[in-house]
């Protein structure tokens, strides 16, 4: 029987509040376990972190470089055609540097990480939940958050800035290739890139990358931990991880942009 609109609104509100409550509890537990491993570093699963870092980081270098390169080529082509009308296509280099270091590098890398690793985190942990491995951890008195979530969060926070640098460099190389085709000397291009980039801008981009890594890992692992024991449970969790990860990153990026605007940085 189809339920009324008031029922639907009520149900969605209750689901939303319950979800929020679960997320708060999950983030709270992550904080507690982080303090635990800070004071007892031996409890940190370093081996698991390295494995997650390999999967999230080094296995994603090629795709990140390719996407970054193509992004650079597209960005340079699109902006050069407009700037060419005013005879200032050389400023494509400035646009590339500011755009990539400040915004596009971190956000494109974050979207790739959410698609590759956020979904993988959710699927791995979700499968473990369906196979009762999380219950096994809990009955062995090993907190699943310390055992499974913290290593993945740390791995994502290390991988994100490194992948961002690779994406940005590949993007700049793509832009250089386009401008070279437009007969602008590479030395001019690189000088403009160097002039328009500031250390603060690069560090801001990398700091954003670290925060995005944290958010993607929390959303991915959280989706895995909440996987339902149904046939489509793991698939749904992976989808939630990707959608939630990308959405959270974009919202966060917007908030950071507003803060930077207010403080004029």
């Amino acid at each position: 029987m189809k339920k009324g609109i008031l029922y639907q609104i009520g149900k969605r509100t209750v689901d939303f509040i319950n979800g929020l409550q679960e997320t708060c509890a999950f983030v709270g537990e992550i904080c507690c376990r982080t303090f635990e491993v800070v004071f007892m570093p031996k409890r940190f699963r370093f081996g698991d972190m390295m494995l997650a870092l390999e999967r999230a980081g080094s296995n994603g270098v090629a795709i990140n470089a390719l996407v970054g390169f193509l992004l650079g080529v597209i960005l340079a082509f699109q902006s050069a055609t407009s700037l060419q009308m005013f005879g200032v296509e050389v400023y494509v280099a400035d646009l590339m540097a500011i755009g990539l270091f400040r915004e596009l590098g971190p956000i494109v890398t974050a979207i790739l990480l959410a698609g590759r690793s956020g979904s993988a985190f959710a699927a791995e942990i979700g499968t473990m939940k369906v196979d009762e491995e999380l219950d096994a951890l809990e009955t062995m008195d090993l907190p699943p958050v310390r055992f499974l979530v913290l290593p993945r969060i740390v791995a994502a926070m290390i991988a994100m800035p490194l992948l961002t640098i690779i994406c940005e460099l590949a993007g700049l190389i793509g832009g250089a290739l386009v401008l070279k085709m437009m007969n602008i000397p590479l030395s001019v291009y690189w000088n403009h890139v160097a002039d328009s980039s500031t250390v603060f801008m690069i560090l801001l981009g990398l700091a954003k990358a670290v925060v995005f890594g944290l958010v993607i890992a929390i959303v991915g692992c959280g989706a895995g931990m909440r996987t339902r024991n149904t046939a489509d449970g793991v698939g749904v969790a992976a989808t939630k991880a990707v959608v939630g990860g990308i959405l959270s990153v974009v919202i966060l990026d917007g908030i950071i942009a507003v803060i930077c605007y207010i403080f004029n940085v």
């Binding site: 196979d131 491995e133 096994a136 009955t139």
Partner: peptide
Amino acid sequence: NKSAIRRKIGVMYQSGALFGS
């Protein structure tokens, strides 16, 4: 008491629940 009790018990789950990695 949960922690203290869990040091006194062991559990084997239906699927075995061995860690696959």
